[in-house]
């Protein structure tokens, strides 16, 4: 035996591959919205407990991402955007992804219960269940409304942050949930319109494929209208204020305009300018969510200075 065979391990995972299982980009949105939910909640929280709560919410969300990658490895392997993920590329074995997902899920829920309270932990457990089982296993391959209903799992984090502080659910936290819930369809379908992934090859029913792209444009506009109402209601709620209302009005006008342009276009004109309006709407949607939650945070800061709030 003169040498050690290493060629069979060429594809072995590094630490980064395991981290990638947790979908870091989704996690960053979860951290931000959970943090806002936690900071705008009345009552205040010990900074260490607050930090731990946000961390465990993020780990729980990441764990559900790992379970999603374990279950969806067959779909991910077919689509270009996802083919490089740790499981379909062969760097992480499916069993490993499953084990990490389950272990981190349980750990995050138990730790959130110990650090914050059982309401927050229960909501986190439900979020993980909703994303990994309801969305990934039941809805994704079955109905074109998959991302609409599945969007609920992405909408829970601010509610969990709020519950970590208050120990309950209230109108404000439900409105924050509704904001992300209604934001997800126009955001995601804008992406689906210009990314043109091979969902049909992967066997995933997407609205753009099953009901056509014009129907998708109409659906996007309808959700945008509902989103406007929720956004204004949130600005008028107890966690809003004049500043939030001003930001909300401007953002809504901006998003409505983008959605209206997308609504009025047909596929030929969209193709001719390389889906410029759809890409613009996708970009605006990112700003929309970030700035809406940012405004709530600013309002809370203003309130503590005796300036903001109703």
């Amino acid at each position: 035996m003169t040498d050690i065979r290493t060629d069979t391990y060429e594809n072995e995972a590094g630490f980064g591959d395991f981290f990638a299982l947790l979908k870091p980009r989704v996690m960053s949105l979860v951290v931000f919205t959970a943090l806002v939910g936690l900071l705008v909640a009345p009552g205040g929280i010990n900074p260490v407990v607050g930090f731990a709560s946000v961390l465990f919410i993020a780990i729980g969300a990441g764990a559900s991402g790992a379970l999603n990658m374990w279950y969806d490895a067959d779909i991910d392997a077919v689509m270009k955007r996802t083919a490089g993920r740790p499981v379909p590329s062969g760097r992480v074995a499916p069993g490993e992804a499953f084990a990490i997902g389950i272990t981190l899920s349980v750990m995050a829920v138990v730790m959130l219960a110990l650090a914050a309270n059982f309401v927050a932990a229960g909501l986190l457990a439900f979020t993980i269940f909703f994303y990994a089982v309801v969305y990934t296993m039941w809805l994704k391959r079955w109905t074109p409304q998959n991302i609409v209903i599945g969007g609920a799992s992405g909408a829970f984090p601010p509610m969990i942050g709020w519950a970590a502080v208050t120990g309950g659910i209230s109108l404000e936290s439900v409105l924050m949930f509704a904001l992300i819930f209604l934001w997800t369809p126009p955001h995601f379908w804008a992406l689906a319109l210009f990314m043109k992934e091979d969902y049909s090859k992967a066997g995933v029913p997407m609205l753009t494929v099953t009901h056509g792209r014009q129907t998708t444009r109409r659906h996007m506009f309808a959700y945008t209208l509902a989103l406007v109402a929720v956004s204004l209601a949130l600005a008028l709620s107890s966690i809003g204020g004049p500043f939030t209302l001003a930001v909300s009005v401007l953002l809504n006008l901006w998003f409505l305009k983008a959605a209206f342009i997308v609504l009025r276009r047909d596929e030929a004109s969209a193709r001719s300018d390389g889906y410029k309006a759809e890409k613009a709407m996708f970009r605006v949607s990112l700003y929309y969510l970030f700035l809406m939650f940012g405004a709530l945070l600013v309002e809370t800061t203003l309130k503590s200075l005796g300036l903001g709030g109703w």
Binding site: M1, I4, E12, A13, F15
Partner: peptide, 19 residues
């Protein structure tokens, strides 16, 4: 032969350090 270092060892070290 025993002291031979390969890229895979670095990756494993990184993984162990990370955990």
């Amino acid at each position: 032969g025993l002291a031979q270092e390969h890229e895979i060892h670095k990756r494993r070290l990184g993984r162990n350090m990370g955990v």
